[in-house]
Design a protein around this nucleic acid. Structure first.
Lengths: 151, 151, 151, 151
DNA sequence: TTTT
DNA sequence: TTTT
């Protein structure tokens, strides 16, 4: 069990890259507000949010690339992952990321600077992982008619 | 471990009652969309949402009563609970509810019919459980200054 | 967002059935302890656990049927779902279930009465949803070698 | 919303320290298995687990210190938190931790080397956050008798 | 009995 | 109808 659920806003547009074998990978950082501290914290010089790196793969990566921008408010579900790499000074460094398997749009849509709002309305462009997680709606849903339920 | 996280909209204004000892209890129903089914499901006569009863206690109950209305979009965290009661015909019935310990406002604020929008803006009226869950921000937050952290 | 995580023990062996189209469906009830109430609650005649119906589909259903028995301790991840049906007296009744998309074995293995322990040891029989949720391990895991990661 | 749920084993005994004002802080690392990769991953030189730093405060910290040891299997609920500090070379480094507000014992109890098993049986020593999270059982539980429920 |  |  390694489960993470975060609600927050992108600090920048997502960056989409491709592996050598052609898999899409999107990455962005989520600003997740620490609830109660905000005002006092600002006064205290304390952090008011956690900035958490998110990684998304394959089709969902492309959907994020096409639909999210800096400021977009999202709900992310995934798992924590710790990668290590060797720094230039020879020491080992650790990076903690959340690998998302679900990204839901929430709330208000940010405008592109000087531009039109993002086309986030319809299901077609939804970042919800359609083929990646068909099981999310596999029962009593459209794919299994009532007559099929054996109890 | 008994953990539930739901995002949805209230189907009606919350109802606030009081126990004999004066504890506030709010109850409402959350409509939680089933993601992928919506369009097809409607055509198929399948349900497009789950309607889930939520129960909230004490101060958070009052905050919900003062800030949420039919249509409000919220994020709820709590636990599943099954109560039983005896029906008039002598049989035992079971009711499943989610007892919320956290309720966060999300997205757009519904308007009162023919009225002004709800005053959901500020932190003062937030439904976030302030004194109920102080531990949610108990570390590295305002209550524990940096000099206090022993590592 | 409709997410549930429960830890508990099966109150009976799982029941596996098949839809008309041949999909497997397992169902069982999880006893989920209410943490702090146990002793006092027993003395008070209060419930000490919630009994929550779980539904599992397809391959994971079969794995549950083959590996879980009454008393098995599991960690379940899924979503809440409310079904309605018409009672004999013409009234509408509601049933709340958790549709599991992940079932992890935990802790001690119960013995079959008068028999050998269940063969829950190996990965082969694991109830973890292998093909249902390949994305759960799709990054930095075996399927994507390090050389593939573009950052 | 910033929610994390992890199941894993402690890589070492927890370390308990105290802030200047006397608050207890426990820290330990959880090894959380990546489910499907284990065997292949080992063969591939890939990581088979994520090693995630956990921080626990106040009474729960002390309970962890008294009850958990290297190898203990636990279920942790908390939130992700990113701290920054200035490295000796002047660069800024980031540390991601999970601040736990609930720690449940699971499964088998490790033995102290050459010693007796830890006394993890009873409620008295439970790591469940008793006073920290009284709301977790605040409804329909011992603290609110049936006669009090107004519906 | 249901929300958008 | 319930598990340990």
């Amino acid at each position: 069990m390694n489960k993470v659920i975060l609600a927050g806003r992108l600090t920048r547009d997502p960056e989409v890259r491709y592996t050598q074998s052609g898999k899409a990978v999107a990455s962005f950082t989520l600003a997740v507000d620490r609830r109660f501290g905000r005002r006092n914290a600002e006064a205290n010089g304390q952090p008011t949010a956690d900035f958490i790196p998110i990684v998304v793969w394959e089709r969902l990566a492309e959907v994020c690339g096409n639909n999210l921008i800096k400021g977009s408010q999202v709900l992310v579900e995934g798992r924590m992952q710790v990668r290590s790499y060797d720094a230039q000074d020879g020491s080992k460094r650790y990076v903690t990321e959340v690998v998302a398997n679900e990204v839901e749009f929430m709330g208000s849509r940010p405008q592109r600077e000087g531009g039109a709002p993002m086309p986030q309305g319809g299901y077609q462009q939804s970042a919800a992982p359609q083929q990646q997680a068909p099981q999310a709606n596999n029962s009593f849903g459209p794919s299994i008619p009532d007559e099929e339920i054996p109890f």
